[in-house]
Design a protein around this nucleic acid. Structure first.
Lengths: 121, 121
DNA sequence: GAGAGTGAATTACATGTGTAATCGACAGGG
DNA sequence: CCCTGTCGATTACACATGTAATTCACTCTC
């Protein structure tokens, strides 16, 4: 699966959230703080199409875009990549790191414990 | 803290593992499978210096390079970034994802549970 | 002391990415 | 039928990155 750049990812998020959409609709739904012009969004859509992670169908004179890959799949791949690179593929090392950095609230801890308990059953 | 590109990261790894080193030493320790020439490694060292994540001290006619940032700090930042982008900052969502993908071995689960238990005490 | 090696610095060049502007086709309102 | 807006497609351009080669200075060995 082709890599998706950080900016492009924001566009994918929009379409994972709601699809199919026209280019204009996507642009309207991209987070404000990106400050992108419609032209910029159209460029990203083309690049994402070229990467094969979006597909489009004709709708009169326009296209309707929709994701061609599943969000979970992409997210799994990216997080796997990071865990491999930075933690030697060891998930517990990641968790230890988060713990050491106080990234885990008591609620997080409880939630994770619950998840793990269910896994074992 | 400046972003470190993926290739550059391999150079940082070498220096986090052992420092200070000369450019030639770094090149010798970079993973074989990168297949980089000495020149390539030197380019990366310059760029990392420019980014302020390495420092160097003169040693006669050469430089000795050493990390200017701590590995834990960088790793924490990068993993935080990913968790924010892909899991809305929710660590349990990440763990759930890993679980759903069978990325957690029984040993991993046990280790994480132990970690969490200690956290609470 | 002249050539060979070794250092860092400078330059190179293709591809990816962020961020558009422009172009040419067409459709809908007057 | 012509103007204006809208579409996708093409082109633009700077900066980042991967991947070096070249250059210039210096040192070590005959």
């Amino acid at each position: 699966m082709e890599r998706i750049a950080e900016g492009e990812y924001a566009v994918m998020e929009v379409l994972w959230d709601e699809a199919p959409l026209t280019a204009a609709d996507v642009a309207a739904r991209v987070p404000e703080d990106k400050g992108w012009s419609l032209a910029t969004v159209k460029t990203m859509l083309s690049r994402l199409l070229a990467k094969g992670v979006l597909s489009h169908e004709e709708d009169g004179r326009r296209y309707l875009y929709r994701p061609a890959i599943r969000r979970e799949d992409y997210v799994a791949e990216e997080s796997g990549r990071l865990i491999d690179r930075m933690f030697g593929g060891r998930v517990p090392a990641l968790v230890a790191q988060l713990a050491a950095r106080d990234k885990l609230s008591p609620a997080d801890i409880a939630e994770i414990e619950k998840l793990l308990k269910e896994l074992k059953s």
